[in-house]
């Protein structure tokens, strides 16, 4: 109706909530990133791009980006591939599918802080089960593997406290923890593929499982894959609890596990440097937004079939 203001009343509640709980905090973080504000200080100074300059020049933050990108680069492909593999296997099972589903999903449901303690024990350099098993194979043909032979002679890695291994070990735990979630998403995607397409593929001459996978399963899982990859990238950028559990101080040996969220926590909460914390947050949000935009583009351009 022309002149009526009714539409404002309809959209106002949603609009107010979005502004209050989403846009305003982001804007505040953005504003804060240009200051040297610290909690409890009566005033603050505008420092311009100084915080950002630090982020992109100082070695600490170089390590931060290195750790975050290494973590993402390992966790995303492995947990997506394992999630898909597990989903395909479970989907082909008749009987024990539900049991396996539960088993693989357990790490997702378990509190990672609690699981971190278990991993810390397992990966302990001397009494941990991992290194004990590795040691017990010393003197067997497994020593033909140079890495293992070196471990037998010089001692096995310290894993979590080893500068060269720490980030990969944390990434391994991230994969272990996360792929069950991807599996559940892929299982949902698999059930939505019409069975008739597999029959059509069979009639058309796709005799091997690999051909059916390439012709039907993989393309029809396209939208699921885009979603799974996006979610996994964002979740990997957000990794925090394992790092906090293993390295409450400092972000691991030589800051090799100093991931972005831990950096935000350390700067803004532990050291009360709100300005630099906010700046890292803005950079973090920028990455997440890039990923999300890429996802939107892919969904609309490439995998939207109908």
């Amino acid at each position: 109706m022309p002149g009526s203001r009714a539409h404002l009343w309809f959209i106002a509640p949603a609009l107010i909530l979005i502004v209050l709980i989403l846009l305003l905090p982001i804007a505040l973080a953005g504003a804060m990133s240009f200051t040297n504000y610290a909690l409890g200080n009566p005033s603050f100074d505008w420092v311009g791009f100084e915080n950002y300059e630090r982020i992109f020049t100082r070695a600490t933050y170089e390590r931060m980006f290195g750790a975050s990108f290494r973590y993402v680069a390992v966790v995303v492909p492995f947990s997506v591939a394992l999630g898909l593999g597990a989903a395909l296997l479970i989907h082909s099972l008749g009987r024990f599918g539900a049991l396996y589903k539960t088993i693989y999903f357990l790490p997702v449901m378990a509190a990672l802080i609690a699981m971190a303690i278990v991993w810390e024990f397992a990966l302990h350099p001397t009494v941990g089960i991992v290194n004990r098993i590795l040691e017990s194979f010393c003197g067997t043909p497994l020593e033909l593997w140079p890495w293992h032979a070196y471990g037998c002679a010089e001692g096995f890695p310290l894993w979590l406290s080893d500068r060269d291994y720490a980030i990969w070990t944390v990434a391994f735990i991230g994969i272990w923890q996360g792929f069950g979630f991807n599996m559940v998403l892929y299982l949902a995607g698999l059930t939505s593929i019409p069975r008739e397409l597999y029959h059509a593929a069979e009639m058309d001459g796709a005799t091997s499982g690999w051909e059916r996978f390439r012709l039907v399963t993989w393309p029809l899982l396209g939208p699921t894959t885009v979603f799974v990859v996006t979610i996994t990238i964002i979740r990997s950028f957000q990794v925090f609890d394992t790092v906090e559990a293993f390295y409450p101080q400092g972000g691991g040996p030589g800051k090799s596990v100093y991931v972005m969220l831990f950096a935000i926590y350390e700067k803004a909460i532990q050291q009360n440097l709100m300005g630099i914390g906010a700046a890292i947050t803005v950079v973090f949000l920028f990455f997440v937004m890039l990923v999300t935009l890429a996802q939107r583009w892919l969904i609309e351009r490439r995998t939207h079939y109908v």
């Binding site: 019409p194 008739e196 397409l197 029959h199 059509a200 069979e202 009639m203 058309d204 001459g205 796709a206 005799t207 012709l215 039907v216 393309p219 029809l220 396209g222 995998t303 079939y305 109908v306």
Partner: peptide, 21 residues
Amino acid sequence: VRPAHRNLAMVFQSYALYPHL
């Protein structure tokens, strides 16, 4: 003999066309 080797063609009720091709 498996379906692919019987050299029969089938038209399905839902057509079962590959949506991405």
